[in-house]
Simulated assay, not measured.
Amino acid sequence: MLSRQQLRTEMRQRRQALSAATQHSAALALCQQVLSQPDIMCQQHFALYLSNDAEINTSPLINALLNANKQLYLPVLHPFVSGYLLFQHYLPSMPMRTNKFGIAEPAWHCQHIKPVAELDVIFTPLVAFDDRGQRLGMGGGFYDRTLAPLNHLAAPARTPQLIGLAHNCQQWPELPIAPWDQPMAAIATPSHFWRFNAD
Rank of each mutant, 00 (worst) to 15 (best):
W172M: 05
R4G: 01
A166Y: 10
C110N: 12
W194G: 11
T159R: 15
P115F: 15
Q182V: 13
S19L: 02
C31Q: 04
W172K: 01
R132P: 05
P190R: 07
N57M: 06
R135C: 07
D53A: 10
A157T: 08
R12Y: 04
I40L: 13
Q32M: 06
W172V: 03
N197R: 11
N168Q: 08
M96V: 11
H89Q: 14
Q170L: 00
T22P: 01
I62F: 10
S93N: 09
I187Q: 05
S59A: 15
H78R: 06
F129P: 03
D39W: 00
A198L: 02
D53T: 00
M94Q: 15
S93V: 09
L136M: 04
N67A: 15
P38K: 10
S19R: 02
H109P: 04
L65A: 04
Q170T: 00
P125H: 01
A54I: 00
Q71V: 07
N168R: 13
P75M: 03
A186Y: 05
H192C: 15
A47P: 15
I177D: 10
G141V: 11
L126F: 03
L50R: 13
D130F: 09
Q23A: 14
E55N: 05
L30N: 01
G83F: 14
A20H: 10
A104I: 02
V76G: 00
G133V: 03
E10D: 05
K114Y: 06
F196C: 06
D199A: 09
L162W: 01
G137E: 10
A64S: 12
T146E: 11
P183D: 13
V127N: 01
V34L: 12
F87E: 02
M138R: 13
H78I: 03
L66R: 09
S19P: 12
Q23M: 12
R12H: 08
R158T: 14
